[in-house]
Design a protein around this nucleic acid. Structure first.
Length: 567
RNA sequence: UGCUCCGUAGUGUAAUUGGCAACACGUCUGACUCUGGAUCAGAAGAGUUUAGGUUCGAGCCCUAACGGAGCAACCA
């Protein structure tokens, strides 16, 4: 590559999303005094998942990029669905991802007072009214997307009467569902959301923060934009399904604003992943029905699940970066996520030997009782991780997959008469096997070793096709290994109209292997420590692990060309 | 028979704002290797949903069609 082209490549700006473009344009036009302020507004009704990570990276990322701020705001306007339990987990997950809202932790419920006053002011301006009709009547009067709605008989109540009723609604004088407050906009609007939307409803269950101070609670549309306004948010980034809400968002801001400042809502595409379900409601069902072990089951797309699975925050951020933000409703391939972890873990995870399905290999010409410490590189991608010593002896375990009595062509592993290197140690040659006479299961493999082939020695020039990982029998530590596969065996489990998503649950999504053997250096590993089991994949220590019983989760396998050849 | 949004290699995104359609993942070759991983080198793969229009020139602007998504919760 010529210097000019190289320079060109380095200088070419990474492309920016349409959102970043909008923000840059707003900045150029001098809007909002050049301030950039975003917010991440989760409802505390469940755990955060990777779809939220996409939003978090955008909200905090844009603020960082433009020298602005990003608030954390809990959108807690519906006390019947929300719980404190979720608040802590949400904060933990955002921090884990690597973002910081500093001291700006807000709650929509902080604004219940102001919102109530704003509603009162709309009533006074004759822009809101109390409707006494039941839900189904109101709903049918709204018309359909293709037919205009009709006006409620209560639409022209006097401001005084509305004020009185609204106040009494909040005092608890009326039953839930008996009355609502509606904005008076336009029942014939082509946009359903503008047909006199309900802005307040009566809820008598206590709120997790405000207790029973309030009996009326604002709807999303009456809380979100206003909260943005109260906090001085300049760019309110949300997913595409809120696009049709934007006129209403702007309508309320118009009623509220006093100066030039106004927040702007911009919508982007939600994250969809193949073989994954993102709906919080359905994830909750999986948890409640015991189909997974909890919100942090390593098969869940939740951030706590991914964390337990062994994902790093960097890998998730890189993934989000890779897929970008657009207005196209796309379905991203999970394998891209898997690629992102592999790439990250390749750089950071120390290599170790772990044997999942052990078969004993006896090196018949190796002295009994002798133990050699062989030196192994911890991470060829990162020299600073150093080296370690691993004990080698006459009897070692290898993986059952690495031996075949009657191998096909191009099998570069151990088979009768074939030679392989035991990585870091010697080249061994298979001389025979012992099988269970009735089942045919291989019980022991007999090899001889070539003492001149010790790794690193002068005479180790001999080349063999295969190199195997191994663990010395007398030094091996027992471990349980949990192998995960995708939770669903359908690309789009939630998108099948005729079938319940449960039908697509992958029965093979969890395989627990016991009696696995790992090298002794792993004895002191702690939960969430990450390793590459050489030739197998990336594994991390599970929370269930303890020094007496190590438990590993497989984060993701290595790409396996042999498996592919075999298909 | 409404309104809003969206259509670019298999997938996801780009295209200096109207100037030779590029990148990543995946796929396929090959090299190297004490991880059949990683790494490195290379290749195939779209003429931008369709039809018109404006223009010297259109993925980009205009019109229409086709296809997809969202909108009729006292959810967010």
């Amino acid at each position: 590559m010529s210097d000019a082209i190289l320079r060109d490549k380095e200088e070419s700006k990474p492309s920016i999303s349409f959102i970043e473009q909008f923000i840059a344009d707003d900045l150029k036009e001098g809007k909002n005094n050049g301030r950039i302020h975003t917010r991440f507004p989760p409802e505390p009704n469940g755990y955060l998942h990777i779809g939220h990570a996409k939003a978090i990276c955008l909200d905090f990322g844009m603020a960082q990029k433009f020298g602005g701020k990003c608030n954390l705001r809990f959108d807690d306007t519906n006390p019947v669905k929300e719980e404190v339990e979720y608040i802590d987990s949400i904060k933990e997950d955002i921090n884990w991802l690597g973002f910081d809202w500093e001291d700006r932790e807000y709650y929509a419920s902080d604004y219940f007072g102001k919102l109530y006053e704003f509603a009162v002011s709309l009533i006074r301006k004759n822009l809101a009214y109390v409707d006494d009709q039941p839900a189904d009547v109101i709903s049918s009067q709204k018309g359909t997307p293709t037919q205009p709605g009709t006006e409620s008989p209560y639409r022209s109540r006097s401001a005084a009467e509305n004020l009185d009723l609204f106040e009494r609604m909040n005092k608890g004088e009326f039953d839930e569902g008996s009355r609502v407050l509606r904005a008076k906009i336009d029942m014939t609007s082509p946009n359903m959301h503008m047909r006199d939307p309900i802005i307040y409803r009566i809820i008598k269950s206590p709120h997790h923060r405000t207790g029973s101070t309030w009996m009326v609670y604002p709807m999303y549309d009456f809380a979100h934009g206003q909260s943005d306004y109260f906090e001085g948010i300049t760019h309110s980034l949300c997913t595409l399904e809120f696009e049709v809400h934007r006129p209403l968002y702007d309508w309320f801001i118009d009623q509220l604003k006093t100066g030039d400042y106004r927040p702007r809502q911009i919508e982007f595409n939600r994250l969809n992943l193949t073989y994954t379900m993102m709906s919080k409601r359905k994830l909750l069902e999986l948890v409640q029905e015991g189909r997974v072990s909890g919100w942090d089951d390593p098969r869940m797309p939740t951030l706590c699940g991914l964390r337990r699975r062994g994902y790093t925050p960097e890998s998730i951020r890189n993934f989000v970066d890779l897929i970008g933000y657009t207005k196209v409703e796309a379905i991203n391939d999970v394998s891209l996520l898997e690629h992102a972890v592999r790439e990250d873990l390749n750089k950071r995870a120390p290599r170790v030997f772990g044997v999942l399905n052990p078969v004993k290999v006896i090196i018949t010409n190796y002295p009994e009782g002798k133990v050699e410490e062989v030196e192994l590189i911890n991470n060829p991608e990162d020299e600073s991780q150093g080296k370690r010593m691993v004990p080698f002896s006459r009897e070692v375990f290898i993986d059952a997959d690495d031996f075949m009595e009657n191998p096909p062509n191009k099998f570069f592993r151990l088979a009768p008469g074939m030679e392989v290197r035991l990585k870091g140690a010697y080249i061994v040659k298979c001389e025979g096997v012992k099988k269970d006479e009735t089942t045919g299961v291989i019980e022991e493999v007999y090899c001889t070793y070539d003492p001149d082939t010790r790794s690193g020695g002068k005479t180790s020039e001999k080349k063999v096709k295969g190199t195997l990982h191994w663990v010395s029998v007398s030094h091996a530590i027992e471990a349980e290994v949990r192998l995960y596969d995708r939770l669903f065996d359908h690309e789009d489990p939630a998108g099948q109209k005729d079938d319940d998503y449960r039908k697509f649950l992958n029965p093979e999504s969890l395989k627990i292997l016991t009696g696995c053997k790992v090298e002794p250096s792993l004895a002191s590993a702690r939960p969430l420590d990450k390793f590459q089991f050489q030739r197998l994949g990336y594994f991390c220590i599970d929370y269930d692990s303890n020094p007496d019983k190590l438990v590993f989760n497989r984060t993701v396998g290595l790409k396996d060309t042999w498996a592919k050849i075999n298909k």
